[in-house]
Simulated assay, not measured.
Amino acid sequence: MRKLRIAVFASGSGSNFQAISDAVHNGTLDADLQLLVCDRPQAQVVQRAKQADVPVFAFLPKTYSGREAYESEILTLLNEKEIDLIVLAGYMRILTPVLVEPFYGRMINIHPSLLPAFPGVRGIAQALEYGVKMTGVTVHYVDGGLDSGPIIAQRAVDVQEDDTEDSLAERIHAVEHELLPLAIGWIAAGRVKLDGRRVTVSS
């Protein structure tokens, strides 16, 4: 039985990509990291992937006629590599049905809040602005909405009285780096079941 074949989509520094790569390398995640997809060829995550000997598909969205055009090219590549799971790890582009539909139930995202609270790109800042005493991290399936898919795993992070966006982000990212490889491991082991909006993880 072959290992789960993963493609990671990322746009920035790639710290979650690194966490996945490290977990695969040290044997705590029994999966094959097959591909990085990045919409910013100069992003740090591209260098991380090259250092880890992970193939990279880096593209400039503005050179395509639209999102569907570059997603169609990505979909072809994913099928060629027989990708089982897409992991969105700081990928800052809205996906279309071109990718979401064929990979529904096989595409996950990590978000820096306890969804459904504070979806979108400013989850950490919104939590501080709202004055919550607790926020956290969510790993969820992607359904085409804004951070609205069924939830696989969550972990809470306390908000401290003197927190800034940077200090809170640092603690949230540390939790992300633990929770995302863990959730991928559950999927790789066949422990995750999706039934409507309900996700169960067997022991």
Rank of each mutant, 00 (worst) to 15 (best):
M1H: 01
R2S: 12
K3N: 09
L4A: 03
R5M: 01
V8W: 10
S11P: 04
G12F: 08
G12W: 06
S13T: 15
S13E: 15
S15I: 03
N16M: 08
I20H: 05
S21T: 00
S21Y: 00
S21V: 02
H25C: 00
T28Y: 00
L29R: 00
D32A: 05
L33Q: 01
Q34D: 05
R40V: 13
P41D: 11
P41N: 10
Q42A: 15
V45W: 03
V45H: 02
V46W: 06
V46L: 15
A49W: 14
A49L: 15
A52P: 09
D53E: 14
V54D: 13
P55Y: 03
P55K: 01
V56C: 14
F57P: 02
A58Q: 10
F59A: 08
F59D: 09
L60S: 11
K62I: 01
K62S: 05
T63K: 14
Y64V: 04
S65C: 11
S65N: 15
S65K: 15
A69L: 07
S72T: 15
L75I: 09
T76L: 11
N79R: 11
E80A: 07
K81E: 07
E82R: 13
E82F: 01
I83H: 04
I83C: 05
I86C: 10
V87R: 02
G90K: 00
M92P: 04
R93F: 01
R93H: 08
T96I: 10
T96Q: 14
L99A: 10
L99G: 08
L99S: 09
E101I: 14
P102C: 15
Y104N: 15
G105P: 10
M107E: 00
M107H: 08
N109S: 02
I110E: 01
H111Q: 05
P112Y: 04
L115F: 03
A117H: 12
P119V: 12
G120D: 15
G120M: 12
R122L: 12
G123V: 06
I124G: 02
A125S: 13
A125M: 14
A127G: 13
A127Q: 11
G131N: 12
M134F: 06
V137Q: 03
T138D: 01
H140T: 07
Y141F: 14
V142K: 03
V142R: 04
G145A: 07
G145P: 14
G145T: 12
L146F: 05
L146H: 11
G149A: 08
G149Q: 02
P150R: 00
A153C: 06
A153K: 05
Q154C: 09
A156N: 03
V157Y: 06
V157P: 04
D158L: 10
V159Y: 09
E161M: 05
D162T: 04
D162C: 03
D163T: 11
T164Q: 13
E165K: 09
E165H: 09
D166E: 14
D166S: 08
S167Y: 13
S167I: 07
L168S: 12
E170N: 13
R171K: 07
R171G: 11
A174S: 08
V175N: 03
E176S: 02
E176N: 06
E178L: 12
L180V: 01
L180A: 04
L180Q: 08
P181I: 00
P181Y: 00
L182I: 01
A183D: 06
I184P: 04
A189D: 09
R191Y: 06
R191D: 09
R191E: 07
V192C: 06
K193D: 13
L194N: 00
L194D: 10
G196T: 10
